[in-house]
Design a protein around this nucleic acid. Structure first.
Length: 569
RNA sequence: CGGGACGUAGCGCAGUUUGGUAGCGCACCUGCCUUGGGAGCAGGGGGUCGUAGGUUCAAAUCCUGUCGUCCCGACCA
């Protein structure tokens, strides 16, 4: 490629809309254009990177027995109604109608569709496992698209679905994909960490997210510095910590606490630590109101809570709903609570001796309350949001925190979709079983953005060799020097012939402009043809990542470049 | 969906308070000059001021509606 012909409108200044570095650099390097909020055109440089990432993915998918297919973007409503997700999926599901007023949607994911194919095509255990995958555009009408490709409404995603005969086989497939994912992100040059994750609305249990570590990540992860444990803050398990456990139980005392609605108010008013309080929060879980108890200084993890309750909708109960079950908003407590209300208690609460809590009465709290003596729970469970410094659930060492970009996720779906859509097979004994499924996604654009987040400097992008849009840039400093230009052109042709992805900056520009664009676009290797070449026959090879400059004889520079490329792949 | 801000040339912005010929920098085109880190000089092209309506002799500027975009929050395979 010649830069004079390259369709890559570079910008000297950052567009105002871009907040994070990857978004800014992609726009400045002319890799993409915004079309609408969360919808982008990939320009030639951006698309070359996308294709390289996709090829790495294909290679690893094929290695584990995957077979690439391509399913449509538009899907009929029927299969979504069959799985029940037509109702469950909210406004994020982009619904459209055809000219006959029939319902369709733009696929946000393809479990329904692939399962409907497999149920028709696969009947016998002899055909399992089956591992179809695709790299396809997905649509999710996000409430708030953000950060360029990081969270778009239209985005490129690889999704594989596995169909196995039983849990044991699924487990094997799952860990093969887990390993394949580790390979993919390593080959893309990402510093990536798999973490235990919630399986979310897609259902099922057993999931890992692959997190590219980055300050700009949208997810919080907790990990242990001493062992392998790592999890998202959504599910990270925590060990309960006791408070004043040697203290003797005291008698319950009612105290007047005017205008003290929050834990902090009460704790300040009574001069006790918030950790000595227990707060009672009321949630609307589908049709039921539940009371949830947690230590005053802790936060409830609503994902853990929802998983324990097994409900679809979990929201904070309205004041009316709270009053309707006989409680006083702001002064809720577990003692003497309406017996019809389920009480969920965090594992730490029974370990707080002589704690404070609401008295069920406006402007009053109770002191010296104790679990077991004064009240009981329907469920005791870990429903607490993890905090940095909490003990690792495996080895007890303090957990560390980091932010991450979720670039991939592997799920065990079990039989959620196969049973809903009737994907069954016949075993050796002529018995029919639901297939056991898994699904495995990778955000391609997000992976590209994550690479840039992790690999850039003040001058621009620093592409790892494996995903660079071009491996080598040839840069003749002075285009008036015909001899010099000719030497550069000879090398350009030789590299092309030898299969190197090479680009030559043949523009009539001053050197500074060329150097800056080369740095911005981030090509891993740069060969500079300058005065030195005429005087000594040497050119400069500059390594973008390290800044290292090697002076080499023009003769043999192609061999050197091929060698350097090979070593960095 | 709640809160905040912004829509003026491809990009970054000024002009709006106090209505009166639409501007600056970058980019682009021509010429000269320059060629190892976004040079200089001279000339030039490009904008229904998001959009619809209203007030006014006169609207980028004031009023109303509407659309879009971004940020914070809520939400999220």
């Amino acid at each position: 490629m010649r830069v004079s012909r390259l369709y890559a409108p570079t910008l000297r200044e950052n567009p105002a809309e871009a907040e994070i570095i990857s978004h800014q650099l992609m726009l400045r390097a002319g890799m993409m254009h915004k079309v609408a909020s969360g919808i982008y055109t990939y320009m030639p440089l951006g698309w070359r990177v996308m294709k390289k990432i996709m090829d790495i993915i294909r290679d690893e998918m094929d290695k584990v027995g995957g077979q690439e297919i391509c399913m449509p973007v538009v899907q009929p409503a029927e299969i979504w109604q069959e799985s029940g997700r037509w109702q469950v999926y909210g406004a994020e599901l982009w619904r459209v109608k055809d000219r006959h007023d029939r319902d369709f949607c733009l696929g946000p994911t393809h479990e329904e569709l692939i399962t409907s194919h497999i149920r028709n095509d696969v009947r016998s255990y002899k055909q399992l496992p089956m591992l179809p995958y695709q790299i396809q555009v997905k649509f999710r009408d996000e409430r708030r698209p953000r950060f360029g490709l990081m969270r778009g409404r239209e985005f490129m995603m690889k999704d594989m679905y596995s169909f196995d005969r039983d849990e044991e086989a699924l487990d094997k497939t799952y860990w093969q994909l887990y390993q394949a994912y580790s390979n993919i992100f390593r080959r893309c040059g990402l510093n990536c960490r798999p973490v235990e994750a919630d399986s979310g609305a897609i259902g099922g249990s057993g999931s890992h997210e692959f997190m590219a570590l980055s300050e700009n990540g949208e997810s919080m992860i907790l990990y242990c510095g001493s062992c392998d444990y790592a999890a998202t803050d959504e599910i990270a398990a925590v060990e309960p910590v006791g408070i004043d456990q040697s203290e003797a139980l005291s008698d319950v005392k009612e105290v007047y606490t005017p205008d003290c609605m929050s834990v902090d108010d009460v704790a300040a008013f009574l001069r006790i630590a918030p950790a000595k309080m227990v707060k009672t929060m009321c949630y609307q879980a589908d049709d039921e109101v539940v009371a949830v108890l947690i230590r005053g200084d802790r936060q409830i993890n609503e994902i853990k809570l929802q998983n324990i309750l097994g409900c679809c909708n979990l929201v904070f109960a309205t004041e009316e709903a709270v009053r309707a079950v006989g409680m006083e908003p702001g002064f809720c407590g577990p003692v003497g609570i309406n017996k019809k209300i389920r009480v969920i208690v965090d594992t730490e609460v029974p370990l707080v001796v002589n704690h404070g809590c609401g008295a069920h009465k406006k402007d009053y709290h109770l002191m010296n309350v104790n679990y077991g003596r004064d009240y009981t729970a329907d469920v005791i469970a870990d429903i607490r949001m993890v905090e940095v410094g909490d003990a690792c659930p495996y080895c007890g060492k303090p957990l560390l925190g980091a932010r991450g970009i979720e670039v991939g996720q592997v799920f065990k779906l079990h039989t959620k979709y196969s049973s809903a859509l009737g994907a069954r097979y016949i075993d050796e004994n002529s018995e029919e079983h639901d297939m056991v499924m898994g699904c495995y996604g990778i955000g391609v654009g997000r992976t590209m953005a994550a690479v840039i987040e992790q690999s850039n400097d003040q001058y621009g992008i620093i592409w790892p060799m494996a995903v660079a849009p071009y491996q080598v840039m040839i840069l003749p400093v002075n285009d008036k020097d015909e001899w010099l230009v000719e030497q550069a052109e000879v090398l350009y042709k030789e590299l092309l012939d030898r299969g190197v992805e090479v680009i030559i900056d043949d523009r009539h520009e001053r050197p500074g402009v060329k150097f800056n664009d080369a740095d911005l676009m981030g090509f891993p290797l740069r060969v500079t043809f300058g005065k030195k070449c005429r005087e000594t026959g040497k050119v400069e090879v500059k390594v973008r990542a390290s800044g290292e400059v090697i002076e080499v004889d023009l003769v043999g520079v192609a061999d050197l470049l091929l060698d350097m490329i090979k070593k960095s792949l």
